[in-house]
């Protein structure tokens, strides 16, 4: 397997006397989509800040693309790691969508053509064409989220961190976000999602890291995680309704309705694949 983009070795972190994370080790490789789950206060936000260098571990090391975060400035790490935060309002400051998206890549010393190409690509992937001259704060909250996503995509980070980016999105926009995640994975980038929404996890992630009591309680593939009744319970998350339904019918775990239909009626597998999931 190729070198990990993210490598945590026995990482511990405390706020003052309060330990938040203890002895956490895992690696994330290019082309992987990892969901970070757990109840509120389990340390997900702290973990996310360790992954982009905003926090440095008290114990152990965090390596991003082989470099120890303790030796790097956050602004340097930002060339490798892109973070979409929960509240886009906290980062948007330009007067137009265009300049907001251009802000990140403009600091990378690309040529003018390369810069424009980056912006155009990010705009197309987030569906913001036609809104480039709008003030970001005149947009509805969901569209504003995509402005924040576009401004990160335009930097072409090799590691993408998404903090509850699916929250409050309708179906069409969730699908768009899922597409972006799939494209990033296909391009050999790594994605870490902090996500409460297990339907979205089942839909988009390959692997689940579950935090409980400051420890890494679960590290499993999405399928294994939801096939097991105990694992989701141990990190205080709900199984997706589709997985519960499959279990109630005595069938092997299913992560999408199409997959369950294929199990229900084995002969129509082809039809189910042709439908939209």
């Amino acid at each position: 397997m190729n070198a990990p983009l993210l490598d945590l070795r026995a990482v511990g972190f405390a706020y003052g006397e309060t330990p938040v994370l203890r002895d956490i080790s895992f690696a994330v490789h290019p082309g992987e989509v990892v969901a970070l789950v757990g109840r509120n206060g389990a340390g997900k936000s702290t973990m996310l800040r360790l992954l982009n260098g905003l926090l440095r571990p008290d114990a152990g090391t965090v390596l991003i693309d082989g470099a120890d975060t303790a030796d790097r400035k956050v602004s340097e790490l930002a060339r490798t790691v892109g973070t979409v935060f929960q509240a886009p309002e906290q980062q948007i400051f330009n007067a137009t969508v265009r300049s907001e998206i251009a802000f990140g890549p403009a600091q990378l010393n690309l040529g003018e053509d390369a810069l424009q190409a980056r912006i155009a690509e990010a705009v197309a992937r987030t569906g913001l064409e036609g809104l480039l001259d709008t003030h970001p704060l005149d947009l509805d909250a969901a569209t504003r989220r995509f402005v924040a996503i576009a401004s990160v995509l335009a930097c072409a980070p090799r590691l993408l961190l998404l903090d509850e980016a699916q929250r409050g999105l309708d179906r069409q926009r969730r699908a768009r976000l899922a597409d972006i995640i799939a494209e990033e994975r296909a391009a050999g980038r790594a994605i870490v999602l902090v996500c409460h929404d297990m339907d979205f996890v089942a839909d988009t992630a390959d692997r689940v890291l579950g935090l409980a009591g400051g420890l890494l309680a679960v590290d499993a593939t999405v399928r294994r995680f939801f096939a097991d009744e105990q694992a989701p319970h141990s990190v205080s998350v709900e199984r997706p309704q589709i997985a519960v339904l499959a279990a109630a019918l005595g069938l092997p775990v299913a992560l999408t309705p199409a997959e369950l239909v294929a199990r229900l009626v084995p002969t129509m597998e082809g039809d189910a694949d042709a439908s939209d999931h």
């Binding site: 179906r171 589709i242 339904l245 309705p257 239909v261 009626v265 129509m268 189910a272 439908s275």
Partner: peptide
Amino acid sequence: IFGLPAVAEVAALLAKAGRWPGGILPPFDL
């Protein structure tokens, strides 16, 4: 707009494949 709850989505897919009888509403809960 929303995507259906999983139980209703399964029924919708079955209906699309002609495996759900017409006129019967999709199941509401588990």
